[in-house]
């Protein structure tokens, strides 16, 4: 674990957005951490390991949302660093569309994965959270991507995800499907979804990149 993580978490616990954002960006600028490290070792664990000390459930949800909002801001602020890095690497000439299905509002994961695809040399397009099934099919038609990556957090959304993946496989059999997210930790979930790649962590992007080279 990076020694700066503790300092970062302390600022997050205080819910001090300005200092948290500056702290994270400073780490990048000073090259103390890489983009990948920031995403995987700072932002992701800050969300997934969040433990609420409050007794009341409502306050916990509110605190979680505040933290998510800070992390999201940091995430967006890292985009110039992504652009900078992308200019240095070799392009793969493969298109990826990234999305979350309808009613799925957890998008941090999807955004991180989007950045990872860019860093891996993909031509990556994040088309948003809560995307209706028909809009997804339209997007696939318009972009003609090589890959569609779907991020699912709530396990109920596996139901709609299955409809989406079945729809893509039926209409665009050549498009490869990548799925990932917390929802697939449920029993039997991944086996019942048509997919080509199952990403357990964002860095699995590089394995896919290796494969398509």
């Amino acid at each position: 674990m990076n020694s700066n993580y503790e300092g970062f978490i302390k600022l997050l616990d205080l819910e001090d957005k300005d200092k948290s954002v500056n702290y994270a960006l400073e780490l990048l600028k000073s090259k103390k951490v890489t983009l990948e490290e920031l995403y995987l070792d700072f932002l992701a664990p800050a969300l997934t390991t969040f433990v609420c000390q409050e007794k009341e459930k409502e306050i916990c949800i509110w605190k979680e949302h505040t933290r998510t909002s800070i992390i999201r801001t940091i995430l967006e602020c890292t985009y110039p660093f992504v652009i900078e890095r992308r200019n240095e690497i070799k392009k793969l000439h493969k298109k990826v569309v990234i999305l979350t299905p309808s009613e799925e509002y957890h998008e941090i994961g999807a955004i991180i994965v989007n950045h990872f695809f860019m860093l891996a040399g993909f031509e990556s397009q994040y088309i948003g959270a809560n995307t209706p099934k028909n809009d997804i099919l339209m997007a696939v038609k318009a972009y003609q991507p090589d890959f569609v990556a779907i991020s699912v957090t709530n396990y109920y959304n596996i139901v709609i995800t299955k409809q989406i993946t079945d729809g893509i496989k039926k209409n665009y059999p050549n498009v490869k499907i990548i799925v990932g997210g917390q929802a697939f930790l449920q029993h039997g979930a991944i086996d019942q979804i048509s997919h080509d790649y199952y990403m357990q962590k964002a860095s699995d992007v590089f394995m896919i990149a290796k494969e398509v080279k």
Partner: peptide
């Protein structure tokens, strides 16, 4: 657990981990 029925068949059957 969610069981989805589609056209008289089980389309999906997932259990919370």
């Amino acid at each position: 657990r969610i069981v989805e029925i589609k056209d008289g068949r089980i389309n999906l059957d997932i259990t919370k981990a």
